[in-house]
Nucleic acid binder design. Structure first.
Lengths: 335, 335
DNA sequence: TAAATGACTGCAATCGATTACAGTTTTATC
DNA sequence: GATAAAACTGTAATCGATTGCAGTCATTTA
């Protein structure tokens, strides 16, 4: 692998000039430049990115912490991140944390060891270890979807979960539903609180309260959807409509409901959240909230790059728009 | 951010000793070591990975090139890659190529600029640009699922697509099916040839030939599945069983078939390939070939690390086992 | 007791770039 | 034609580690 020196030899110039032709071409004479480019081609020279990073103090990469790589929704976000990063000359280091603190710590510390310039977190946990807390103070970091739980406020890209759930709930009450079941995700997160209070606020307007026994779940997966549905179906007050906190859960729930010989939506309506691709292809197609995952990823990159470039952030919450997709998994209550 | 020098000051030793306590602890006296660890803690010191990389010539990361991040099958592979990489002290740079040569070139060149030590490619194209071909000669590289088309033979982790398709075809002929349709993926790849010849070989044993007009598709997506199914359904010799080259295609196809008022499998059997998670949850659950995606990812890392460590490879093809999952999307031919 | 060995530690070169500063040549200005 | 300004280019320090080599001191060995 040839280095800058090789090019110097071939072109008969100093390293400075070579470096400049690549970074600040207009600082060097056109003829010299040409000679150098020829030398570069001849040598098959590629600048060693690490060498330049060490000098400039920038690694030009971002770490992305994902709790669960098998969720296609996260994928879509990552796609957005990846694309935006690339456009800005950054590359993406992927960290699959599986929700484990130890792995989060490990990946987060990449920012501390100069392997990455910033961090995008797709979860609500504070990713650094207690030990690193003070070191982490000035780390460029954003979270997507979920707000990071910590003393310091970190910016977040999210949608208005409260309103989105109100929209869903209104949609269902307009079909006459009054007994709701909920299969939620992790209960410690802000999302959980926001969404639940959105649902409750609509019910309240109808004079209904949501019983605790009708809120089940705790994990975002198809299996959790199956289990949750099973639980709800066996409840004395079997709900007529089920809120699932993401589409994976909804897919699991619908599967389970059908297994019990019930029909969706004739016997029970089911709604999801996220709008992953497959949701339009299942039977029945899923009513859900569309989250602009791709754009959220892009926005997250913007925000973290702002921080890296030490530009002040205009706001600490970027709210993106949702839309309610009424498909066929929800319908008129039939009794 | 404090550097090694800060630690030297605090501990009253040279940089060499600090470096050694971290990399070769048994080269330094226990007491000194303790002093240094205390100093490290006090300084909040993190070794600058880039600085060490430049000296050692190793970046300790791998680039992974993915043609389509929204395919959950790839995700599963990436999960395996990520896990294995992490266990070996490597991190994963993610490149979403969208099948575009330009993006492939860009990401592939990360290996040339020392940003990554090796490359894992989830596609069949040769990822380097023509220009870089000679430079790329000694690059540690593996492909997963698909064989890389190039002069040099690169190792591959794949399954026996020919046999897998024979298994599927036998499964279908055992149900009495004789008229097959195929919704394939990209036609330029080895996979395409292997799979098709697997199918044909079984048909041949039954004295049947597969008409060209019954082989459609060209892309791995649900939309392609819909379009492909539409095409096959309108064929004069409507097939009674449809082979889909992955589960996404199958999901799209089933969706389309139902839209035409036909039932799966009573009117038409559909089989997929990959066994992504959702395939067990759709209606009807999909008969498919299980590819051990996670393990394939892990194996790919092994192979590329072998190359990085300049150990000779035992073989240039790592074959993984498949298994036929007979679920409910395929069944007895009813006429 | 002298010599040899082993255990630590430090000096300083090095990895491959970037960049402040200075030096040289060319061009512009009067 | 002399001087100032602009345009290039080179020298050498620097980024933050790693590591070969040499030096010091304590411990064995003969």
């Amino acid at each position: 692998m040839s280095t800058i020196k090789k090019v110097c030899q071939l072109a008969g110039v100093s390293t400075a000039t070579v470096s400049r032709t690549l970074k600040n071409p207009d600082m060097v004479n056109e003829k010299t430049r040409e000679r150098i480019f020829k030398a570069i081609a001849e040598a098959g020279y590629r600048p060693n990115v690490l060498a330049s990073s060490i000098k400039t103090g920038r690694s030009n990469s971002l770490v992305v912490l994902v709790p669960n790589l098998s969720n296609p929704f996260f994928l879509k976000i990552i796609q957005g991140i990846e694309q935006a990063a690339q456009e800005n000359g950054y590359s993406v280091l992927l960290g699959d944390t599986q929700g484990e603190a130890k792995r989060e710590n490990e990946y987060a510390s990449m920012v501390l060891s100069n392997r990455a310039d910033g961090l995008i977190h797709l979860d609500h946990s504070f990713p650094f270890s207690k030990n690193d807390e003070t070191l982490a103070e000035n780390v460029p970091m954003v979270s997507v979807c979920e707000r990071i739980v910590s003393n310091k406020k970190y910016p977040v890209v999210e949608l208005d979960n409260y309103s989105a759930c109100r929209a869903l709930a209104n949609h269902l009450t307009s079909y006459g539903h009054k007994r709701f079941g909920v299969i939620a995700g992790q209960k410690e997160s802000q999302i959980y609180r926001d969404r639940l209070s959105g649902i409750k606020s609509v019910l309240q307007e109808e004079g209904i309260t949501l019983e605790d026994s009708l809120v089940v779940g705790g994990e975002y997966s198809m299996e959790a959807g199956e289990i949750g549905a099973r639980e709800l179906l066996s409840n004395i007050n079997r709900p007529t409509a089920i809120f699932c906190f993401n589409d994976d859960i909804a897919i699991g729930a619908i599967h389970e409901i059908k297994k019990h010989g019930l029909r969706v939506p004739d016997d029970i309506s089911v709604v999801g959240f996220d709008n992953i691709k497959v949701s339009a292809y299942i039977d029945p197609p899923l009513t859900t909230i569309d989250q602009p995952a791709y754009d959220m990823g892009r926005k997250a990159v913007e925000v973290v790059l702002q921080q890296i470039k030490k530009k002040p952030l205009q706001r600490d919450r970027e709210i993106v728009q949702f839309s309610l997709l009424e498909r066929e998994s929800s319908g008129q209550l039939k009794m």
